[in-house]
Design a protein around this nucleic acid. Structure first.
Length: 930
DNA sequence: GTCGTCACGGTTGAA
DNA sequence: CTTTCAACCGTGACG
């Protein structure tokens, strides 16, 4: 009351200081003060209602009933007023406290008022030298106020005090009689940032609790009063009381923290240069290693050491700069000679797909026609093939997206007018699920890409910068992509996922192809495959390719034939899983690096269903970072000459073949007539084991292919412990960058993975809450159908999962696929939401792109917002990329609270006969959010 | 009923 | 000067 009045008077009217005698009142005189206050006809409320008051007139300025004690028209200077105000407030606080004690019958137990007096002052600790302040000394108080002015805005402080002290008479007159509804209503109608909390006390959102209340909270707590009681008594939310008391316990202070302002910048130019230097000296260095080195070298101290993310940013910026310069160099290349190169585009495509990092990197859902160029450069110095991935970021977080676009390889972005009739849609590359669709409507073939100036290959040598010098650790890129995923959402992608999916299901379900159609497509595809037109089903190894593969395999580090971007004719590692006999399939491509001397990007249209995946972390067979599907592919890699049937269980093989057939059916033109003989032929051919490209790569690392799953956490950037090499060499993602000499734990870098998982990398999602729906999914018809194995099942067979990383579900529709990843409870991530969105608008294929020349994203940077104008890839027939809306805006938008987004594009294949709604995950997603 | 936690909407001030 | 961003705030809901 009195306190409130005082504060209000000072702040609002900033005028009359309290009468001098009041100021000099000391604790023993509280009774006197009380009397005066009461005399002041200020309150209609009783003494118990300490906070009640009549400040309304303060607000309104015209309301009678101003306490006498406060009014003093001839107020002194502002400092004096403030000083007096504080003193008065302090006294009132004491009064309130005493009253509270009385209420609780603790008055006798309370310390003397003098003691309380001093205690309160100490608790306030205005200047950090609270012991010097004394209510008896006006000068001291004034000094305290002055010091406070220096540290914090005195106005703000007063204002904060006011926040809790100014009450609306209307509110207060009702006092506790207000119902919750009324209170909430008041809060709703609060004006000027002032609100009324559930206890009826007015507060200003965002401003700290006034000091006197803080002190009271502390005092009451020290008296043994329970927080809930304090909360009620002081009309402060219990959360606030808890917070303040916790702070007091932890820090010994009840003062609020510093509000606003910025931390001193730690990424000084010196640090930046050092980081870049370290990275340049050792490109495989992890961010945490760099961090450690900064400390070791004395560049930084613990207090000003840049964070892992900062270091990564520095590195990324550097890489971007390099990429830009690299792109510039590519522009000068003569590409005319490349147009007629007889490249096997499908193989290139497959290899593209097989590259592990594509998934993780392609965080931003590419718009249609997005090509993810992949460079596999030869690190001759180390005798290791170092895959380099160029990411095309269509958009997204302005800074990142902008940077990412610069990484696009110009060669890939240039679309050759010549188009292959194969009509392989290049939409993007799914990291682990690739499906070709016979219905591919988007014609942008790998051949197109191949016709692009594949730079140096034609010249028989790797171009500097393309190869080793421009090598970018895939892990970093993947991490970068991951980070990108968390970037701000695109405003253009505000579509409600629920509505989108609903629409999808509605429209796509009706369009599901029938079994006959699927079979026909399979036949066609197989026929074509037999003719060597389709790489998907081609299992027979082309002698040339085989030789090339062999050569590369034997000399992985010395492969220098630029004209052999394709090592293997068949992308055998693509593991296809058919989950049902209905033509639904999930295809996982083992992520293996392929020896492609240039950047290749491709997309395969895929039809799908709902195929739940589960990634499980395991220190045993399967690395948690590799999808089960990849693991399964491993066996193939181990036995490259073994026919697919010999790999794994019969059921698996069967399912694999089925899925292959199913998926492959989508990649061919439906116009071709298919005969049974052709089918048989194709089948027989399919038994021939293709040379696995995986064998070509990374012999240095136990001869295991380097694979990278988008599930991989930050590998190269080191937010956590360096992942241990995968036990299964075949599937393990191995790169020198993985071999960390020192665990981050030694660096005191917190990593949840340390305690319970030894083989996971820092950003491993396994830390994310696990959906318990695994069992559900296994039970779901989609997976249990006819004994077909789900990836999850397969994975569980191989190893005992210690922790489920997350759950991935594939929404597969006739021509599109949406990958939905469940990360924790009610947290969903849609990897290629843009596709999802574009699917819903598929009725309006973008026809404006027909003649448009593809431009590098960097070219578009200047003119348009990043990601808004996406280069449209067209085929030679000027067929616009369809179905994925060239104008579709990238949207790795976290659903709900999804904190991670994986936006790798996944191609889709022929329609599946399964009802998408059978997916439990989808069902959950479609549930109205409560 | 109590209490810790956290999302939310807000404020603040340095960059 | 405005904008951005990251700190903080108290509240209220949740478990």
């Amino acid at each position: 009351m009195a306190t409130d009045i005082l504060n209000v008077q000072v702040k609002k009217e900033s005028m009359e200081p309290p009468s001098e005698d009041k100021v000099e009142e000391t604790a023993p005189d509280i009774a006197q003060i009380v009397d005066k206050e009461n005399i002041g006809e200020t309150n209609s409320c009783d003494n118990d209602t300490v906070t009640s008051n009549n400040n309304t007139e303060d607000k309104n300025g015209d309301k009678p009933g101003t306490p006498i004690m406060v009014i003093s028209p001839e107020g002194g200077n502002t400092a004096e007023q403030l000083q007096r105000m504080i003193q008065q407030q302090y006294l009132v606080n004491l009064l309130q406290f005493q009253q509270s004690m009385l209420q609780q019958g603790q008055v006798n137990q309370a310390p003397s008022l003098q003691v309380q007096h001093q205690t309160l002052l100490n608790a306030l600790d205005f200047t950090g030298k609270s012991g010097e302040t004394s209510p008896d000394s006006t000068q001291n108080v004034a000094g305290a106020v002055k010091e406070r002015k220096q540290n914090r805005s005195i106005e703000g402080e007063i204002g904060s005090d006011n926040d809790s002290l100014v009450f609306d008479d209307e509110v207060y007159s009702n006092g506790e009689e207000l119902t919750d509804k009324q209170k909430s209503e008041r809060i709703r109608h609060s004006v000027g940032g002032r609100n009324i909390n559930q206890y009826g006390r007015e507060f200003t959102n965002g401003r700290p609790l006034p000091d006197h209340l803080r002190v009271q909270i502390l005092q009451l707590a020290l008296q043994g009063i329970r927080p809930c009681e304090i909360s009620r008594q002081l009309q402060v939310s219990h959360g606030c009381v808890s917070k303040i008391l916790n702070r007091y316990r932890k820090t010994g202070s009840i003062n609020p923290g510093q509000i606003g302002g910025s931390k001193p910048k730690v990424t000084t130019p010196d640090v930046v240069s050092r980081v870049r230097q370290y990275k340049m000296e050792n490109p495989q260095m992890f961010a945490w290693e760099i961090r450690q080195k900064l400390l070791a070298d004395g560049i930084c101290q613990e207090k000003n050491i840049p964070s892992i993310s900062s270091i990564n940013r520095i590195i990324r910026d550097k890489a971007i700069l390099q990429r830009r310069s690299f792109d510039g160099s590519l522009k000068d290349c003569d590409t005319t000679d490349m147009d007629d190169l007889p490249l096997d585009t499908e193989r290139i495509q497959r290899y593209m797909i097989s590259i592990p990092n594509l998934t993780g990197n392609n965080m931003t859902p590419s718009t249609e026609g997005t090509i993810i160029p992949v460079q596999v450069s030869l690190d001759t110095a180390q005798g290791v093939l170092v895959p380099t991935v160029n990411m095309i970021r269509q958009q997204y977080s302005p800074p990142i997206a902008h940077q990412q676009t610069s990484q696009v390889s110009p060669t890939l972005m240039r679309t050759s007018p010549k188009q292959s009739p194969s009509s392989i849609v290049i939409q993007g590359i799914g990291n682990d699920a690739i499906k070709t669709n016979e219905n591919a409507q988007h014609v942008f073939t790998v051949e197109d890409l191949s016709r692009q100036k594949f730079v140096s290959e034609n010249n028989g040598h790797l171009q500097p910068g393309v190869g080793t010098s421009q090598t970018v650790d895939i892990g970093e890129l993947a991490v970068e992509g991951m980070k990108c995923s968390s970037s701000p959402k695109s405003d253009l992608n505000r579509h409600n996922l629920h509505s989108v999916i609903s629409h999808l299901i509605t429209t796509q379900t009706a369009a599901i192809m029938k079994e006959d159609d699927i079979a026909a497509q399979q036949l066609q595809y197989q026929n074509e495959a037999a003719q060597g037109q389709s790489s998907e089903t081609i299992i027979e190894i082309d002698p040339e390719i085989n030789d090339a593969v062999s050569n590369i395999t034997k000399n992985p580090g010395t492969v220098s034939n630029p004209l052999s971007p394709i090592v293997s004719k068949d992308f055998s590692p693509i593991v296809q899983r058919k989950f049902s006999s209905e033509g639904l399939s999930i295809i996982s491509s083992p992520q293996t690096y392929t020896v492609a001397s240039d950047k290749i990007g491709s997309t395969v249209p895929v039809t799908i269903n709902i195929a739940p995946y589960q990634f499980e972390s395991s220190s045993k067979d399967n690395s948690p970072q590799i999808s089960p599907a990849l693991s399964s592919s491993h066996s193939m890699e181990k036995h490259p000459q073994t026919s697919p049937q010999s790999v794994g269980s019969n059921a698996r093989n069967k399912s694999r073949h089925r899925s292959r057939d199913s998926s492959s059916s989508g990649s061919m033109s439906p116009t071709t007539n298919r005969t049974k003989s052709v089918e048989k032929k194709a089948v027989s051919r399919s038994n021939v084991v293709p040379a696995p490209p995986a064998a070509v790569t990374y012999d240095k690392y136990a001869g295991t292919p380097t694979m990278y799953d988008y599930t991989l956490p930050d590998r190269g950037l080191g937010t956590g412990p360096a992942p241990t090499p995968r036990p299964q060499s075949g599937n393990s993602v191995k790169s020198h960058s993985w071999h960390c000499p020192q665990s981050p734990a030694q660096l005191s870098i917190p990593s949840p993975a340390l305690s319970d998982r030894s083989g996971t990398s820092p950003l491993d999602l396994s830390s994310a809450p696990i959906k318990e729906s695994r069992r559900e999914i296994l039970k779901s018809p989609a997976l249990s159908d006819k004994g077909s194995l789900s990836v999850t099942e397969e994975n569980s067979e191989k190893s005992t999962p210690q922790k489920v990383l997350y759950e991935k579900n594939m929404l597969i529709f006739s021509e599109n696929e949406v990958e939905i990843i469940s990360v924790g409870n009610n947290k969903w991530v849609v990897r290629n939401e843009s596709q999802l969105l574009s699917m819903t608008h598929k009725g309006k294929p973008d026809g404006q792109t027909e003649t448009q020349t593809n431009k590098r994203p960097s070219d578009d940077e200047s003119g348009s917002p990043v990601g808004l104008k996406i280069p449209k890839l067209t085929n030679g027939n000027s067929t616009p990329m369809m179905g994925h809306g060239a104008n579709t805006v990238n949207s790795s938008v976290p659903l709900t609270n999804g904190n991670m987004i994986f936006s790798a594009n996944v191609s889709v294949d022929s329609p599946a006969g399964r009802d998408p709604k059978s997916c439990p995950v989808l069902q959950n997603m479609l549930k109205p959010k409560t």
